[in-house]
């Protein structure tokens, strides 16, 4: 753990990259496809606040670069940096995000205030929400049936309403499927 602390944080690396010159070769600081257990621990033990601060700094760095895009930073470089940010967020936070999404899933449908707060936290941590369109066909990849309704005016097997939005990471990994009500014709 001590060796880890001595290393510059991803945020510091990005700030340095931004201050030296635009468009350095950006290598994601992640090691692996999925977050490590140690990564998940570091998110909770020093405190989520510290991590949120780190994320905020990263976002600022990206925004700063976007702001400077007229003075030499190309769109490709900005999008590369955005990808790095998404990678870092996902590698550091995926387990936390998944757990958070799972807890949210366990909250009853009528507890909208609790869900609202958790949604705000997911948003803060960089996750992206999505909803389902009415009359859309059910897709088990992104939708989950929370309730079934019987509406004779709607076709069978289509979505009647979104009960709770779904969440995914910036890289497109589904954290929580969108909870929908599904129309079933008797």
């Amino acid at each position: 753990m001590s060796a880890k602390k001595n290393r510059p944080s991803p945020a510091t690396k990005t700030r340095r990259a931004a201050s030296k010159r635009p468009a350095p070769v950006i290598r994601p600081a992640i090691k692996r496809d999925a977050p490590s257990v140690s990564g998940a621990r570091s998110a909770s033990t020093p405190g989520t606040q510290a991590l949120c601060k780190e994320i905020a700094l990263l976002r600022e760095s990206v925004s700063a670069l976007v702001g400077r895009s007229q003075i030499g930073v190309t769109a490709d470089e900005v999008s590369a940096l955005r990808r790095v940010l998404a990678d870092i967020l996902e590698s550091r936070m995926l387990t936390v995000l998944q757990k958070l999404a799972a807890i949210r899933h366990a909250v009853p449908l009528d507890a909208s205030e609790v869900v609202g707060r958790m949604d705000a936290l997911l948003d803060e941590l960089g996750a992206v929400s999505f909803t389902a369109e009415r009359l859309e066909h059910l897709d088990p990849v992104i939708h989950e049936v929370g309730r079934e309704v019987r509406d004779g005016h709607l076709p069978d097997g289509v979505i009647a309403a979104t009960l709770r939005p779904g969440w995914r990471t910036a890289n497109g990994q589904i954290l929580a499927r969108c909870l929908v009500s599904l129309n079933r014709r008797a």
Binding site: D33, A34, F130, A132, E133, E136, D139, V141, I142, G166, R168, N171, G172, Q173, I174
Partner: peptide, 10 residues
């Protein structure tokens, strides 16, 4: 490919 764009699965 989904209605909300491309998503990835492990």
């Amino acid at each position: 490919d989904t209605a909300v764009g491309r998503v990835v699965r492990e």
